[in-house]
Write a protein that binds this DNA or RNA. Structure first.
Lengths: 338, 338
DNA sequence: TTGAAAGCGCTACCAT
DNA sequence: ATGGTAGCGCTTTCAA
């Protein structure tokens, strides 16, 4: 635990020069910098975090607010937490985990004590209570997800409207006139913001493109495979030839199995596109086209925005939408003539 | 962001009295304390984290080392991370997330900068590289899980030997003479420390108790339901009437389904006990007896130990085993006469 | 029971 | 390009 004055002594320079050499906030001659770096390595010097926080204005710590409910989908949450910590580390930031039952308490605490430079909010609900905290707090806050009332907040999210539009267009372009959407659980539609957005966009866009009919199916699907299978059967009966999937990985599996059971081949008989999945549709038994929700993209953007806010640079409040990418896996085929 | 001197002024006392009143490290008269508490609330005072770290000796932050690999079982990891942060919060500690690819780098960094008071290590491998870091570091470290070479480390874990013994005993006591063990994936047996311990204990204990035969099945089961089903079929053919399960939730499901497919009822024909599962066997379609690995217990113990170490109080190095609890769900029945 | 003041180890301003 | 040094907001002696 060498301190900065030791480094200065060994390098034969002043304390301030060491500080500036390390922060780069003031030019230091190459020769001096060399000697300092050498001394740093020799002594295994690492600046004291507390002293930095106190003297400087930054803590180099972000808080990650993610209330871990028992019913939450662990893999997605993990993916986002991981992506976020990795994104933060790239910018020299550490991540403090806020999982309190009462998310507000944690956010208040770390903000009041100046422990973190900014708060990153995951798993955002439409009526998220953390919105109020963010507004009342002087600590910069970035939401990954879009609460209902977000006018003055900084929010990052996949552009689900664009994604849904692209999915529908791809299917319609291939001649599919009847499209079916399989969504997630009823709970997802209430707790989360984007499932309704995807649903509405799919319906609207299909109508715009003159797709004859658009069926929508959703329910407590995850816990009940039967519901999914039933939905698939109804689609097939109704002459649906294009399916948009906006549901967890397990659902995708079930759909594929059921189609096979019904003797429908993919993509020859039925085409499928997955929208906003955070899992890898490539590793499904049969890969399917996908417009994925890539945690990495959202998280890197969120961290970048947080850093801008911390630096006091202007950031547009409102939505920061990530442009979706269409991954072609061959699960959309031109509709066979009836 | 009121500061301590403001609180002192409002309360009409000195700065040091405020500090002592809040820390409780020196007796303060009831009247004075009241005035201070009032002032604190009035001003919404919250001590500055950086100043505390610098002046005091503690940061009130723990680091949680958990390398999040893509292949790791998200739900268990989440459960442990959550349990750990909750346990820490109870003791006024915040949790810093260390998920670096190179776990060692993160541990070195936070230790060197004095950012955290202690490191809590999750998902411990037999030959875990973090063992070396812990040894080389002055920062207290507590492992949840047991590396091969753990003589001088502080490790917390479920007493898997005891759990496995209890499971076997329960089955043997019920008259089962042929016991089958279904373990996790081959990878789990290499990457983790306890699967082999459970396997060996089951085999040994069964022999001790004079159980006529003990079959062991394990393999890349998670990814391949067929393997599990095959194992179950072999068990049934071999006259196994008691099954010990030591595998992820999905495997339990498959076993239940396969038994039903074979026309074997549970527990009338075959008894089952799950050992060391961190999921809730109660919520399976058919509840089964279980000796669960409760993240909460391990994590609270780990946090307590960390706090002892931080306080400089003596802590026995070596294993701190959590006593297992047998949960009776009615999945073990007396063996029917052949 | 309380107060005064000396640090804790940095950053960043003001000099040179 | 470099150095001196005044804080940052606490904790904790040392005194009273």
């Amino acid at each position: 635990m060498a301190k900065i004055d030791e480094v200065a002594r060994v390098a034969g320079v002043s304390i301030s020069t060491v500080s500036y050499a390390l922060s780069g906030k003031r030019p230091v001659s190459a020769a001096t910098r060399q000697r300092i770096e050498l001394a740093v390595r020799e002594l295994g010097y690492s600046p004291n975090a507390g002293a930095r926080m106190l003297a400087g204005s930054q803590t180099n710590i972000f808080a990650l607010s993610e209330p871990l409910r028992a019913d939450s989908h662990a893999p997605s949450h993990m993916a986002f937490m991981h992506a976020m910590t990795v994104a933060a580390r790239r910018r020299e930031y550490d991540m403090l985990l806020l999982t309190d039952e009462d998310a507000s308490a944690g956010m208040k605490r770390v903000a009041a004590s100046g422990l973190v430079d900014a708060v990153l909010v995951l798993d955002v609900a439409p009526d998220d209570p953390r919105v109020a905290i963010a507004r009342a707090s002087a600590t910069p806050t970035v939401f990954v997800g879009i609460p209902d009332d977000h006018g003055d907040l900084v929010c990052v999210d996949l552009d689900f409207e664009s994604a849904a539009t692209q999915a529908v267009d791809r299917l319609v372009d291939a001649g599919h006139e009847r499209i079916g959407l399989i969504g997630g659980s009823r709970r997802a539609y209430e707790k989360s913001n984007f499932p309704p957005r995807v649903r509405d966009t799919v319906v609207t866009r299909a109508a715009e493109r003159g797709a004859t009919a658009t069926a929508v199916a959703s329910g407590e699907i995850v816990t009940d495979r039967a519901l999914v299978r039933q939905a698939v059967r109804r689609f097939v009966d109704d002459g649906v030839t294009g399916i948009v999937l906006h549901a967890p990985e397990e659902v995708a599996q079930v759909v594929l199995v059921e189609l096979e059971a019904l003797g429908r081949r993919m993509p020859d008989d039925v085409s499928i596109v997955s929208v906003g999945s955070s899992f890898d549709t490539d590793s499904l038994p049969t890969p399917i086209d996908s417009i994925p929700l890539v945690p990495q993209s959202s998280c890197e953007r969120a961290v970048d925005l947080a850093i801008e806010l911390v630096a006091g640079r202007p950031v547009a409040s409102g939505l920061h939408l990530i442009s979706p990418t269409y991954l072609d896996r061959g699960s959309v085929a031109v509709r066979p003539l009836p």
